[in-house]
C-alpha cells in the first residue's frame, strides 16, 4: 500500500542549516548532509532543502551542497529557493536533486511551471503555495509570505496542476509556527479537487496533528522543520504512532 510520507525540511543558508538543531551524537549539526543522513536513518521518506540565501553569487554553494547530498543520501530530496530559470533547474537536477520547488516565481510567471514540467517532467516540479485566510477566502502569498496576491488558493492550485505541477506543497501561514495543528479544511479541499499529491506544511506540534492531516486533511505527505530539529517529535516514534492508528507509513526497521 502506498504510504503517507514524512518530510523534514532543512532551511539552508550559505550551505549551512539555519534553524537551531538539537541532535546529540552529531558531529556537525550545521551540516545539512549530516543532518539529512540522520533523518534518512530514522525513516524520513524524503527531505526538502530550502535555500534562503538565494543570491546569485551564493548559488554555487547550493549546487555544491546538492552534489554532496546526492552522494551521501539514499532517499529522494527536493531543493527550493530562488529558482527562476530552466538553467537553474537543469543545474540542480544534474547535480542530483530529485525535485525542485518554486513558489513566488510561479505566481510572477505561471508559464515557468509549463516550461519546467515540459523540459524535465512533472514528477520533479513541486509548487509551493503559501496561504492565509483573509476573512473571505484562502489567499495566496508570495515573497516568503510577505506579499498578498489577491489570488484564491484552490483555483490557483488547480491552475498549477493543469500547467504541469507534480505536487503541491501547501503551507498555511496562519498555522505555521503556532504548533496547534495543520490547516485541515483547506488541505482537504485542495487535496480533494486535485489529482496530484498534496504535501501539508505548517502547524505540526503533536503526533496527533500528523494523524489528523492524513485522515481529516487527506494530505499525501506532511512536512515539518523545528519539531524534528529540536527532537520534540522523533520520526520513528511518530511513524509507530501513525501505524497504530492504521495510517499507512513506512517503518525504518522494516527495511531489511
Amino acid at each position: 500500500m502506498l504510504t503517507k510520507r514524512i518530510i523534514p525540511c532543512l532551511d539552508v543558508k550559505d550551505g549551512r542549516t539555519v534553524k537551531g538543531v538539537n541532535f546529540i551524537n552529531l558531529r556537525d549539526a550545521g551540516d545539512p548532509v549530516e543532518l539529512g543522513r540522520v533523518y534518512a536513518q530514522q525513516g524520513a521518506d524524503e527531505l526538502t532543502f530550502l535555500d534562503i540565501t538565494a543570491t546569485v553569487e551564493k548559488r554555487k554553494t547550493l549546487v555544491e551542497l546538492v552534489k554532496r547530498v546526492s552522494l551521501n543520501l539514499n532517499i529522494p530530496f527536493t531543493v527550493g529557493g530562488g529558482i527562476r530559470t530552466v538553467e537553474d533547474v537543469k543545474e540542480l537536477l544534474e547535480s542530483g536533486a530529485d525535485k525542485i520547488s518554486i513558489n513566488t516565481e510561479a505566481v510572477k510567471d505561471p508559464s515557468k511551471v509549463d516550461a519546467f514540467a515540459g523540459e524535465f517532467g512533472s514528477q520533479c516540479v513541486v509548487c509551493a503555495v503559501d496561504v492565509r485566510h483573509n476573512g473571505e477566502f484562502w489567499e495566496v502569498y508570495i515573497n516568503g509570505g510577505r506579499t498578498p496576491t489577491g489570488i484564491e488558493a484552490v483555483s490557483w492550485t488547480k491552475e498549477l496542476e493543469s500547467r504541469g505541477a507534480g505536487e503541491i506543497l501547501l503551507t498555511s501561514m496562519d498555522h505555521d509556527g503556532v504548533k496547534k495543528g495543520f490547516a485541515l479544511d483547506i488541505t482537504r479541499k485542495i487535496s480533494s479537487v486535485l489529482s496530484i499529491p498534496v504535501i501539508a506544511s505548517g502547524g505540526a506540534g503533536t503526533m496527533e496533528h500528523f494523524a489528523d492531516v492524513f485522515t481529516e486533511g487527506k494530505a499525501d505527505a506532511a512536512l515539518a522543520a523545528s519539531i524534528f530539529h529540536f527532537r520534540e517529535i522523533e520520526i520513528p516514534v511518530l511513524k509507530k504512532y501513525l501505524k497504530e492508528r492504521d495510517i499507512p507509513v513506512r517503518m525504518a526497521d522494516e527495511q531489511e
Binding site: 500500500m1 502506498l2 504510504t3 503517507k4 489529482s195 496530484i196 499529491p197 513506512r250 522494516e254 531489511e256
Partner: peptide, 25 residues
C-alpha cells in the same frame, strides 16, 4: 492520484535481483 509517488511495497519476489530481500519491503 497520479503519479503514483512515494514508498510502496513489493511482493511475490522471485529472481536473484531480490536475493535476501524480504517480501513486503
Amino acid at each position: 492520484k497520479i503519479p503514483h509517488m512515494g514508498w510502496n511495497t513489493i511482493e511475490d519476489l522471485s529472481s536473484p535481483l531480490f536475493r535476501g530481500i524480504h517480501e513486503g519491503v
